[in-house]
Amino acid sequence: MFHWLEKNPFFFAVAVFVVIAFAGLIEILPNFAQASRPVIGTKPYTTLELAGRHVYIKNSCNACHSQLIRPFKSETDRYGHYSLSGEYAYDRPFLWGSKRTGPDLHRVGNYRTTDWHENHMKDPAAVVPGSIMPAYTWMFKNTADIDTAYAEQLTVMKAFAVPYNKELPMADGSKVTVALADTVEGARASALEEAKVIAVDMKDQDVKDAVAAGQVPEIVALIAYLNSLK
C-alpha cells in the first residue's frame, strides 16, 4: 500500500493530511463545544483597559511575563489563586506567555499599584534592585490608540456577543455593567475619564499634563490594564 501511495502523489498527500488532521479534530473540537464560559466576577475590558492591553501586546510583555498561575503551592503562594479557564473568557488573544523571565502577572492588580508601576516602568532597577527588565520610557510619551480599542470592543460585542452594556454578576453578589459608548467620540471621552482617575495617582508631570489636555499616554492605558488583572 505504501509503495502504491509513493507512486500516487495525490493520494499520498490526502493520506498525510488525514493522518495529521486527526489529532486536531480530537484535541481541539471537544473544548470548542463547551466554549470558554466566564466565571462569576469576570468582566469584559473597558476601552482604556483594552487600549492598555494593546500596549502590552505591542511591546511583547508576554515574551517575558506569563499570565497563568499553575496549581502548585509555590505558585499560589507567590501569585495568588491558581488561574481558572473562565477568567480568560474575554481574552482575545490569550496572553499566557511561555517564559517567565519576569514574574507572572495574572493577578498583578492585587498586589501592585499605579504608583509602583509608574516608578517601575520608568526605571525597573530603581524599584527592584538587580532587575534586568528594560525601562519603557517611550510609553510616557506615546499616545494610546483608543480608537482601535473601541473598534475591537464593537467587533467582539457584535461577533462574539461579549456582554457590554449588560448587568454582570460579581462574586460579592453585586451587579456591574461595563458600558460601551455608542460613538467613537463617546468612547474617547469615557477612556479619558478612566485615565484621569489613574493620572491622579501618578507623579510624572508630562503625563498629568497630557491627560489634562485630553490625551491618554500609553503608560496610563497600560496601568489601567495591569490594575484590572485580579
Binding site: 489563586h81 492585587n110 501592585r112 504608583d115 495617582d201
Partner: peptide, 10 residues
C-alpha cells in the same frame, strides 16, 4: 502620602 498599598489576602 506615597500612594496606595494593596491588601495582601493570600
Amino acid at each position: 502620602a506615597i500612594g496606595q498599598m494593596p491588601a495582601f489576602t493570600n
